[in-house]
Amino acid sequence: MPETMLLVPGRSSKQGTSLNKGKFEDEYQEITSLVEMNEEDMVRLGFNNGDKLRLKNPVGETIVTCKSKKATDLPHGMIFIAYGPGSSRLMESDTAGSGMPLSKHLPVQVEKIG
């Protein structure tokens, strides 16, 4: 059974600097498809740094690379990704009359591939 976790897309320094180098460069692509996860969750789920994960919800899916984060820095069940094409694929387009799609705190199913 894939685990359901809460995806938080946000800005990061590396996302910002790589953006300037170009969105078609490998660096930007890599950074926007890297997901940070609580190290204890990783142990529990049997994930290792560098594992390819599939994030999936009713909107779409994307493939990311897993990276551990200290348990004190990221709560259990939460994963962080830098904004980019990856997070877009999981965003619902309905804005509830606000103009703003829900872009953070997206419940996604996480499973290891390959």
Partner: peptide
Amino acid sequence: DPASNFPQAA
């Protein structure tokens, strides 16, 4: 660059 960061349907 909405083609890169908008929801997929958009």
